[in-house]
Every structure is written in C-alpha cells, then in structure tokens.
Amino acid sequence: MEKIYILCVEDQREVLHAILQDLEPLADSFILEGCESALEAEELMDEVDSRGDLIGLLICDHVMPDKSGVDFLIEVNRDGRFLHTKKLLLTGLATHQDTINAINQANIDRYIEKPWAAEELVLRARQLLTLFILDKGLPYEKFLPILDTDILFERIRKS
C-alpha cells in the first residue's frame, strides 16, 4: 500500500517545527515531512514519487531564499506527477501579485495567513487530504477517522 505524505516547506527551522508539531494529529495516517527550501522539497518529492508513494498535501511558505514558495508551487502545478497533490500556501508576506500568481498559475487550494491557528491548519489539511484521497480513487476506509466527513459524504452521494 502506498504511503501518503504531507510535506511542509518553510525556511525558518522553528516555524517548520511548529507546523509539524501542529499537524501531529495527522501523523498516524500520513507521513509528515519537512523541508527547509524548495530545492530540498523538489528532491524529496522526486524520491517519494519514484518509490511509488504519494504527496497528498504540500504546505508551503512564500518568502524563502533561492526559490519563492509561489514559484515552487507553480512548478509543482505543471508537473504531471503531482496532478492531484493539494497545495496550501501558508505565509504572512505575499504581495498582491504573488497572491494572484498563486491562484492563477499555481492553482493553490488554500491560503492561510501567518500567524496561523493550529485547529484551522489541521482542519484545512484534513479537508484537502480528503479531497486528495477521493480524487486519487484510493480506498478511504482506513482513513475514515481523520477524513472530513462532510466532504466525504458529499462526494459519495454524488458519485
């Protein structure tokens, strides 16, 4: 059975740690990973993908050295391998133009402003992962306890 990863990209170590800490409730069902730069994330995603595992959710900061979060998400969006990967932009410092790019070119699924509330972050992550599992057609039964039931029932009713 392939594993589903939640990948957080944030250049500040303390903040990265805090995000991972907040996502701890999801750690039983998914694999949490953190990266300190977009380049590191690219490598990891490459590796995860070639092992046949899946990147379910990508949580990404915007202002980072080397490559900005939005640029990174735009590339991921164009990558056929991560077609269903959900993208969440978590930032306090995105200009108007960055935000426009994030929506139009990176197709982000959710924008959360820093500082974030842990409950909000976990809730959004659960919703996006529910969508990911359904979009991918993965068996959702074993994820039931942490999935967002509203979204799940809505989808099952429609199909």
Binding site: E2, D49, S50, R51, G52, D53
Partner: peptide, 9 residues
C-alpha cells in the same frame, strides 16, 4: 526517464 521502483510498479 526514471523507472518507478515501488512494489506496485
């Protein structure tokens, strides 16, 4: 070109 290396692959 990189062949996937998972069991399923």
């Amino acid at each position: 070109s990189r062949f996937l290396r998972s069991t399923k692959a």
